[in-house]
């Protein structure tokens, strides 16, 4: 067996080992129910509930944004985001938060928002101008 083959073999072994260890970094998009049960740090994708107030008072605390999110099971929970409110938050179609359940609230420190596509913008622009 050649040395370079040994190296490649070792790399493959290392790769498989890493793959297994990296599964710890993975999570499926969770729901509030499973987050409640496991208590683990998870990602939840959901829809912003616009009927409820979005609390962000930078004069009081710019590190606090409170809102309600509807998860894949259509359950609505209060979410506490330990960050400033993202730009255009109210316009977002989908919100992905990373965090865990703490005392009945989902406490998150990461957030990603998905905004409407440009196509819709175009329609809006046209409607307004027309």
């Amino acid at each position: 067996m050649k040395k370079s083959h040994i190296v490649i073999f070792l790399m493959i072994v290392a790769g498989i080992a890493l793959l297994f260890s990296a599964t710890g970094d993975l999570s499926t998009y969770s729901t509030f129910a499973t987050a409640e049960d496991s208590g683990a740090r998870v990602k939840i994708a959901g829809e912003l509930v616009l009927e409820k107030d979005i609390i962000f008072d930078p004069l009081k605390d710019p590190n606090y944004t409170g809102f309600h999110l509807k998860d894949a099971d259509n359950r609505i929970k209060e979410v506490v985001l330990l960050k400033a409110k993202p730009q255009d938050f109210e316009l977002s179609e989908q919100v992905v938060v990373t965090g865990s359940m703490q005392q009945g609230k989902f406490v998150a420190n990461e957030v990603l928002t998905k905004c409407p596509s440009k196509y819709k913008d175009e329609e809006m622009a046209l409607r307004k101008q027309g």
């Binding site: 499926t28 998009y29 990602k43």
Partner: peptide, 10 residues
């Protein structure tokens, strides 16, 4: 539901 990396940067 799909997998995602919980904390990508880390």
């Amino acid at each position: 539901a799909g997998y995602a990396i919980t904390d990508p940067e880390e």
